[in-house]
Design a binder for these strands. Structure first.
Lengths: 319, 319
DNA sequence: GGCAGCAACGTAATCGTTTTCATGCAAGTT
DNA sequence: AACTTGCATGAAAACGATTACGTTGCTGCC
């Protein structure tokens, strides 16, 4: 019956008394409108999809939490598809989400402009998180990796460490590239005479350990080491401890991300904090904004700031 | 056209040649079947819902990963709704998932038998994870908190620690209750003459710290302390360090969960490991099994084992 | 009192797929 | 050669909501 629909959706053109009767009957019969039927005619699912790579622990859960909270606050459901290593898998995931979601949140290093063009109907609103894609066709939300890394390098230099080495992340990773750039730029600006000193890493604890040993084996040991993420910093810390070095007295250490572990290692790790819940929330709200106005492409690029968290590992201790 | 449907779903009754032509046309037009229309007639969404409480970091992400991987392997989508503190919110979430999901995975301390009865149509397959509900109407998948706790107490006693104190979790929490029982039972069995020594906690790091101080303030100090989860063990460790005690020489310490932090504190924490990814995977497969056979209620209760991870904090060091 | 106008409500079309049923064609059987 | 059998295919109903449109009945004005 048409009046039922009007009453249930709070529409106008129904007597208060009729609406009352309908609601009473609905709750008595435990009536719930059939989602599929509504989707079919409305062409809206009130669901947004999140496409995530196989990323680790804390970052993942915080991001989902941010997205989920914001989604529920706006009456949207959240369809998750995580753990995509290859572009293959991601493409399959995107296709199978077709039509089930009103919009898509994508966080994936493997997704580039070509991928988007060939796998997404251009009518589907998308927000890319931490993506190198610089398309004018999609909204992009990035973390200020560059600014965070620069600020950390500056902090280390100002704390009196004359030389700062950098443990890089995987070359293909966009975040890693930006952090690398931040290091180089800040070094050139604040310590133009100090050497640029970079060793390779791949964001794993193991690679941080190897990088730490490599640094100690070289003839000139840096005064401070800045790892492109916290896990590598933790691995590096192990290497330093094994070598009998004291942190921060003999060598300072800093990381990036502020994962929970950073607080618990000894000494606690100075790092760059990303407000992950916030990242998820903002991404979702951008997406919802796109849905509301039928504008084809806002194509905004927003950057979320980071903040430096000073703990004991860099020798400019809080206490 | 009917043949299109048959061809797309790999049904029989279509010539190879016709099927070929249809698939060619489909990919040329980038045709994707409309999910809602299919749901409407099929009465299946190929989606399962996960209802989760506001749980922290690693556990959450690992659980989702396990569920997601298993779901994708079986062609199901995953609709997530997390961060439910109250029964109110959980009820709303359940209702709004009505009809969008073929089955529900529920992990929530607040959900009891009455809740299920009043909020779920009994036709909807459900698997409860770590739930105190002992209903015969729903499948339940639990972690062997009791066995894990018993085994840890036994391990501590056999390592030569004559007395073992326990830092309990929140009274209302089902896991905490079972771990408490495990402690009591193992103490009675393996050290019938040693005192039962329990201090309160609530699973937070802060409460572990307070418990640690409380233990030290009492006139008889236990030889070993077993915290009902790792976060409390970490807090407790801080208290011990502040008091100048050496772990494990002066006092041994063990936790439960094996969260990543356990490996990184100094000394690394002996703990009970839960295979979380496995937990998620098994839960999902139980649910899917329910979907396939239209059996009304399997009502099975399965328990997933734990294993003890021995690190340095309990004085029975690996190395 | 009659007619215009408006609000409330019901009828029916619609969304895109699955599925049942009927149709037609080809081959096999007597 | 006629009839049965079987299979590929198309036509049409069904799923359950939304919504445009038409109908009813009331109010109020002339």
């Amino acid at each position: 019956m048409a009046s039922v629909s009007r009453a249930m959706n709070g529409g106008s053109g129904v007597t208060a008394e009729t609406s009352e009767r309908i609601h009473a009957a609905a709750s008595r019969l435990q009536y719930v409108p059939h989602a599929a039927a509504r989707m079919l005619i409305t062409r809206r699912s009130n669901t947004i999809g999140a496409l995530l790579p196989d990323l680790y622990g804390e970052f993942f859960s915080e991001l989902i939490r941010g997205i989920d909270l914001a989604a529920r606050a706006r009456g949207f459901h959240l369809l998750v598809s995580s753990s995509h290593d290859g572009a293959e898998e991601a493409a399959a995931a995107v296709r199978s989400m077709q039509g089930r979601v009103d919009g898509l949140l994508i966080l994936s290093a493997r997704v580039d402009a070509a991928f988007l063009r060939s796998n997404l109907p251009k009518s589907l609103p998308v927000v890319l998180i931490n993506s190198a894609v610089n398309s004018t066709a999609h909204a992009v939300l990035n973390v200020d990796n560059f600014g965070g890394a620069s600020a950390m390098v500056r902090h280390l230099l100002q704390a009196g460490h004359s030389s700062v080495a950098f443990i890089a992340g995987p070359k293909s990773n966009f975040d890693a590239q930006q952090r690398d750039q931040g290091y180089r730029t800040a070094m050139a600006k604040y310590a133009p005479n100090a050497p640029i000193h970079i060793v390779a890493g791949d964001f794993t604890e193991e690679s941080g350990y190897r990088a730490g040993r490599e640094l100690l084996a070289q003839r000139t040991r840096p005064r401070a080491v800045f790892a492109a993420n916290d896990m590598m910093a933790v691995g590096c810390l192990t290497a330093f401890k094994e070598a009998g070095l004291r942190v921060p007295q003999d060598i300072a250490l800093a990381g990036f991300d502020d994962i929970p572990v950073a607080r618990y290692v000894t000494p606690p790790l100075t790092t760059v904090r990303i407000r992950i819940v916030e990242l998820g929330r903002i991404a979702l709200e951008h997406l919802v904004a796109q849905l509301d106005k039928a504008d084809p492409a806002p194509a905004s690029v927003q950057t979320l700031g980071c903040e430096i968290v000073v703990r004991d590992s860099c020798g400019a201790g809080t206490a």
